[in-house]
Computed example of a mutant assay.
Amino acid sequence: MRHLRVVCRLADSGSVSKAAAALGVSQPSLTAQLHRIEDTIGGPLFERSPFGILPTPLGKHVLGRARAMLADMDDLLGSSRRYSARPGPLRLGSVRTVMFGAWLSRLEELLPDRQITTQVDTSCAVLTDLLAADVVDVIMLGRCDDAHAPPCPARAVEQTMVYPEPFAVALPATHRLASRDEIQLADLAEDTWIIPPAGKEDGDLAVLREACEAVGFSPQVRYPNLDSAEIEQLIGEGRGICLCAPTVRPIPTTVIRPLAGQPVIWRRALRWRPETISRADINVIHQAFIDTYRATIADNATTHPWWQTTPTAHPTIHAPCA
């Protein structure tokens, strides 16, 4: 079952390096493990492409069977927990964020008697699938609007923690617009956009395209398989621009500027199934997140010269439900 989860994570990540990071192993270790799995099954499961790795015909067959088997196993484990009197581990899923370590530390202080296990991914769609399959109890999403976002699974509910969260844009310090206090999206028509790491599509790229097309251009998108450090380096070297949340930390040789009119906004939300986690736990998770979010804003966003004079660029934070 562990090997089947590795194969599914590789397919969802679309990249050996991203899958290795999500699984907490080195890339050479994961590559060696994949070779052992392929030797056992009898053929290659993935092939390289310009956009990462793609499943072979054999890989598609194995993935179809693996997902069904894993869903059955997860359902068995989830249903079995209902007969146990002692609380099991709190299984937390989250999108990648600069706040994750601080948030997790805060949660472990607030829930000292609970073991917290984590699943981190770049894609809200992957996390939603993990919730639907009962691999995690609760997920934190930084998701786009309802028209493009992965739908909430059956029996699951969503609770907003931050909305709206207006996105800014990271520009090279030498960019022609770097001296402006606010950027019009239409003025970025000739720029190259760097997008987050490739993986299962979750609507984020569609939202960017829609916002750009609404002001008259289609974004030129490049470099789909880079991690955060590589993206920051490319921006600093003048190779492109990127959307960023107000929580983003200062980046050398880069400036962060708000987008006029809030053309791209995000929602930070929790999703969970009520039968697997209590309302009390959800409120603790929610409060710990927004406390961490406020602290991160205070550390990072307030360093921008435009922050105090541009209230429209500030996110709205929501307290837990009573």
Rank of each mutant, 00 (worst) to 15 (best):
R86D: 09
L92Q: 06
G78V: 03
S80D: 12
T97W: 09
V120W: 02
P166M: 05
R143G: 09
E213D: 08
R114I: 03
T174W: 00
A147H: 12
R155A: 12
R82A: 10
T128A: 10
T160I: 12
P153F: 03
L188M: 14
V126E: 12
T128K: 02
V95P: 00
D137R: 00
P172Q: 10
L104F: 07
V95W: 02
D181M: 05
G142T: 13
D129R: 08
I195F: 08
A147L: 12
L111V: 09
P153V: 05
C152Y: 01
E213C: 07
G216S: 09
A178T: 09
R155S: 15
F100A: 05
V135T: 08
T160S: 12
R86P: 01
Y163L: 10
E108M: 13
C144I: 11
R81F: 01
V162P: 07
T97P: 04
L107V: 06
L171S: 05
V157G: 05
E201C: 03
L90K: 01
G142Q: 13
S105A: 14
L208D: 02
P172K: 08
T192F: 05
S218N: 04
A154L: 10
V215P: 11
V120M: 08
R106C: 03
D202Y: 04
T128N: 03
Q115T: 12
E158N: 06
S179H: 14
V95M: 10
P112D: 06
G199V: 11
V215C: 13
E158L: 11
D137T: 03
H148W: 08
H175F: 12
G203L: 11
L130G: 00
A156S: 14
G88F: 02
R180H: 14
A132Q: 13
D146A: 15
P112G: 04
C152L: 11
Y83F: 15
A211E: 06
P89Q: 03
A149R: 12
C152N: 04
F167G: 02
